[in-house]
Nucleic acid binder design. Structure first.
Lengths: 241, 241
DNA sequence: CGGCAAATTGACACATCTCAAAGCCTGTGG
DNA sequence: CCACAGGCTTTGAGATGTGTCAATTTGCCG
């Protein structure tokens, strides 16, 4: 049980890792950090020399507009290597902030480059995480563009359920969503008020139980059906990549 | 002037290419294709063994929902290497279709892998294009979530202007946007009718001229200001990546 | 117990959707 | 060269979804 366990679990769900690759990952040096709701892990405009890996809680990529509005463009759960982007893009065009309390570790870019040079297969798996992020963003774009508030929320819950389950953070059909409704609103591009109505509406269907931060999915099939959710884009099948 | 000229131009805007790297790219074998509006370059559910590079016109990543609705999650212009994603994700979770008429060439995955193995720097530049796609998607998510129709459209025009200019497809401050309003609607998550109203509204500001498929940006500064556009995310500065 | 952030509700304003119809291009066949 | 068909653009009117503002309730923590 190390800080990299979740990351290894997330990769292992998608391809077979050899012992040597596992060792290379475990050999990465890391510096730990602990954050409270809203605290920034990576600031917009900065030029990071490390990438961060979420170890507990959740973090979000956030873009701020004029007039104090903001949009969350991605949610990251434990095991997600956030910010490999900064390896290539250099200057951050957005910030990464904690959603609820969260912990993360930071790994220097040169060490990432080193282990990908030693194992081309690992290099591909790091690129896979980039491509996977992009696939999730496409699903979000689709929800934002073509689904109403309730369906959007249902789709998001399905996605998070699968993503939490991969890293062992579900208990049966429930998981902990330590997120404020106002943060959810920034994910779905809605007002806080309307987000609350969407939550209410979803509860009324009976498909989902939601008490405090505890979300229980009573009927995943129907929830997926009402939001046109198909887990294909999460690439949860082991393939040789 | 080869089929790879635009791609090389797009990379050269972001980093310096050595002659050897240029030669490696030019050495790639390719198969050409020509498509009419709506024709699919890559089908959802397929398992591509090639990646495609747009050489003229535009293509779009498209996700279909029930009830015939669709959402375009990305627009690709000449010089864009679409579908590097399929190198990692294996099964397509969306399709790539022509917007207006378009031509593209297809490059076998093994050849891409080969030249990235020969040049780690090229490998990083290929990853850069993945990361850049993701940055653009973040901007789209922000537009979908937090901007009204007119501002969304203005932001999109700014983006496309910069992207076309990099590959030499602008004439002064104008460019050819051979796209149907119904396709634009699928980009912005709006109805065709409302998209038309947004176009009308933008014309009324006088910041943009739009006759047929010819778009002329009369005042880029104001257009950027009204849509909170900042080209940072397009990474148009040469850096060592 | 008191204080504060978060969740919830109601009423009304505004953005966007749907449906329906009319006008406008462009390619094609006669 | 003209007439027509079909797709695209444009407009109007009424329905629906979502935003805003303001107030109340709930839940947590000191």
């Amino acid at each position: 049980m190390t800080v990299f366990s979740s990351f290894i679990a997330a990769l292992s769900a998608r391809d077979t890792l050899e012992d040597r690759e596992r060792d290379l990952i475990e050999s990465l040096p890391s510096r730990a950090g602990r954050y409270r709701r809203g605290e920034e892990l990576v600031a917009e405009g900065s030029r990071p020399t490390e990438s961060c890996l979420i170890t507990s809680g959740m973090a979000a990529r956030t873009i701020y507009l004029m007039e104090g509005q903001r949009q969350i463009t991605a949610i990251h759960v434990p095991g997600d290597f956030v910010d490999l982007h900064s390896l290539y893009l250099k200057t951050m065009d957005h910030s990464v902030a904690a959603l609820g309390a969260c912990t993360a570790v930071f790994v220097p870019h040169p060490d990432i480059v080193r282990i990908t040079a030693e194992s081309p297969h690992l290099a591909r798996l790091f690129s896979l995480t980039l491509a996977l992020d992009a696939a999730i963003q496409r699903a979000w774009i689709t929800s934002l563009g073509r689904r109403g508030a309730a369906a959007h929320l249902a789709h998001l819950l399905c996605e998070l359920f699968y993503r939490f389950r991969v890293v062992g953070l579900t208990a049966g059909s429930s998981f902990d969503l330590a997120v404020t409704q106002s943060e959810l609103a920034d994910v779905m591009g809605l007002s806080t008020v309307h987000t609350n109505r969407a939550v209410k509406q979803l509860r009324a269907t009976g498909l989902v139980g939601w008490v405090g931060s505890r979300v229980t999915i009573h009927d995943l099939g129907s929830l997926a059906a009402m939001s046109d959710f198909d887990p294909l884009y999460l690439n949860l099948r082991k393939e040789h990549r």
